[in-house]
């Protein structure tokens, strides 16, 4: 597999204004030295506490921000080269926390058509793309509804469809479930997984929900502007203390196993799903009975 996103020694500082209003770059960079390569078709979760730099990193993937030092390549294109801007934004689409900030039209299908229209796609091709995108997020039946009539989870799926309609190779989602209820969260997560598995779209998911991160192929933990951990979820979540030290957490089932181990109980370290937890506890209790 080849890399679709490649960051090499990425350093970034935000700009602030001096007292007299002249812009000045901050002294301490938000991203201090990030090197990371994301494979085509993979599903990566990025974790980090507020202010760790994870959203700043995400904004580099579709060239909303460009590096002060180092390079970011999207499908081989340098994000710092303005000529690549359109091609990069078409390749890597972004979904934000609040769907209300991302939805522009008053009818669902018109909203989804917004990006392809702006890309100058032919009308019958737009029709096809919009229908496909809405079916992919299971919102086709709502195509003529007003977005305001939809629930949070439905709106977020429409926002995702709007990105899908550009036919990107990669979608970056910045806390897409932060404002949703449990069911809305599940709908969005199911959609993301389906797009990744069935359509082969590369997914980069930024989240504060550890149970969502557990569904990814790989977890990257960013702390203080650097990559702290980078591994499969089972290996990352096994480091309970490290994660808690940097303001993160582990899924509840992982924490339970951790607490039981502290009491001297022999239970697997790498439990990250409810099913695994049930199986492990069952085995433990059965063994105990004998």
């Amino acid at each position: 597999m080849s890399a679709i996103i490649e960051a090499k020694n990425l350093v970034f500082r935000y700009q602030e204004n001096e007292e007299d209003g002249t812009p000045k770059k901050q002294e301490i960079p938000v991203l201090k030295d990030v090197s990371l390569s994301i494979e085509k078709g993979s599903f990566t979760a990025i974790l980090g506490h507020n202010g760790s730099g994870k959203s700043t990193f995400a904004k580099h993937i579709n060239a909303i921000l460009v590096p002060d030092e180092g390079k970011v390549y999207v499908d081989g294109m340098d994000t710092a080269d303005e000529e690549n801007l359109f091609a990069i934004r078409q390749k890597a689409g972004m979904v934000f926390q609040n769907p209300d900030n991302q939805i522009v039209a008053t009818i669902v299908e018109e909203d989804v058509a917004f990006a392809p229209e702006n890309l100058g796609v032919a009308p019958d091709e737009i029709r096809r793309r919009v229908d496909d995108a809405l079916k992919a997020v299971k919102m086709y039946d709502y195509r003529s509804h007003a977005p305001t009539q939809l629930s949070g989870g439905q709106k977020q799926r429409v926002a995702i469809a709007g990105v899908i309609a550009m036919q990107p190779d990669c979608i970056i989602l910045d806390e897409p479930t932060a404002m949703l209820d449990p069911q809305g969260r599940q709908e969005v997560m199911d959609t993301i997984r389906r797009l990744n598995r069935k359509k082969g779209i590369t997914v980069v998911l930024i989240t504060h929900y550890m149970e969502e991160a557990a569904l990814a192929d790989r977890i990257v933990v960013i702390d203080d502007g650097r990559v702290l951990l980078d591994d499969v979820p089972k290996k990352v979540f096994a480091q309970v203390e490290t994660l808690q030290r940097v303001g993160l957490d582990v899924p509840q089932v992982t924490e339970l196993a951790h607490l039981l181990r502290q009491e001297g109980i022999e239970i697997e370290k790498d439990i990250i799903s409810a099913e695994e937890c049930v199986a492990a506890l069952e085995a433990l209790l059965e063994k105990n009975r004998k």
């Binding site: 509840q252 924490e255 339970l256 607490l259 039981l260 009491e263 109980i265 506890l281 433990l284 209790l285 059965e286 105990n288 009975r289 004998k290």
Partner: peptide, 17 residues
């Protein structure tokens, strides 16, 4: 999670399956 830990521990102590 804490309640779950205590419950599992107490069940194990009882030798409970």
């Amino acid at each position: 999670v804490e309640q779950a830990r205590d419950a599992v521990l107490s069940l194990l102590r009882k030798g409970g399956g």
